[in-house]
Simulated scan of single mutants.
Amino acid sequence: MELRIFTEPQQGASYDDQLRVAKAAEDLGYDAFFRSDHFLKMGSASGLPGPTDAWVTLGGLARETQRIRLGTLVTAATFRHPSVLAISVAQVDQMSGGRVEFGLGSGWYDAEHTAYGIPMPEIKERFDIYSEQLAVLTGLWETPEGETFTFSGEHYQLAEAPALPKPAQRPRPPVIIGGAGKKRTPALAARYADEFNLPFTDADTALAQFRRVEAAAAELGRDPKEIVRSVAQVVAIGRDEAEFTRRAAAIGREPAEVRQNGIAGTTAEAVDKIGTWVEKTGITRLYLQVLDLSDLDHLELIAAEVARQLG
């Protein structure tokens, strides 16, 4: 089981805050440091000192870490032109020595689009854009050096693009796709995904979607086992009930609620919950949504008392 740290910096975190967490995660043996790609806080958080750009941040972390893998869960297709995004991601992959993993979604948070004047089409058009972006991004990365890439879609047209720079990983960084859509999402995952992720859902719902992805992959003649199964869950763990309750309060969650909907409770409960996820769904990768970035002891506890028991 790979444990990955997943952060939500739009809730209030500077670059230095994220750097401390990424370095701690690397030192403690976590597999990856991921962050969301948002420009506006959610809920009652202050959001101070303000948002940080996901790919600028990851470029910095690429130079200040050595081993840990880096990525987004997930970049929104509404934010950036895919050609520009392909260059940014390829450059960060080069800067990291080939440690980038690329999550892409269609975009969903209306309020941040309104706040910053970013167009937010209706869901069908947004999904069409998302689909074309996957084709453009992977096409640019996979085009051999010395050749060009041309694409003619409804939303994007590229003519003999040199498709440079190339990422360090060949033919491209791993692509992560997720979501609960029952038709188009599994079809896109079957075509493009190296990993399929279900965030903040229950095991039965996740398993049903994994099976849809598996069927779509088989229909394309692809081995479904090539696609990693993963989930994301909020985390709040304590050595005892008092410590768990304090950590739940620190992220604004009721103990009973977060216990039901996340990896939460005592360390023994967390190990049991993860074991149940593995048994029910076959996941091999778990993203732990860490919402209190000041609590590095939390990361140390999970590494020492939970990860150790998972093997």
Rank of each mutant, 00 (worst) to 15 (best):
P121G: 10
P174L: 08
L188E: 01
R126Y: 13
G107A: 05
P119Y: 11
P199C: 06
S131E: 12
E132M: 05
P162K: 08
V175Y: 01
I177A: 04
S131C: 12
D194T: 03
G178P: 02
D194N: 10
H155C: 13
S106R: 07
A189I: 02
H113R: 08
M120Q: 11
A159H: 14
G146Q: 12
K183I: 11
E125L: 11
G179H: 00
I123D: 00
A187Q: 11
P121S: 10
K166F: 02
T143Q: 09
F127P: 02
L198I: 09
I123W: 08
I118Q: 10
P119V: 13
H113A: 09
E145N: 06
L198G: 01
T185E: 03
G117I: 14
Q133N: 07
T150A: 12
Y109S: 05
T148N: 14
A159R: 15
Y116I: 15
Q157Y: 05
V136S: 05
P167K: 02
A161C: 15
G105Y: 00
E160D: 12
R191K: 12
L164R: 05
T138Q: 05
Y130H: 13
G178K: 00
Q169V: 02
P144T: 11
A193W: 00
V136K: 01
K183T: 13
L164T: 11
S106D: 07
G105H: 01
A187K: 05
I123P: 00
K182Y: 03
I177V: 11
E195I: 01
H155V: 10
M120P: 06
A193D: 03
I123V: 00
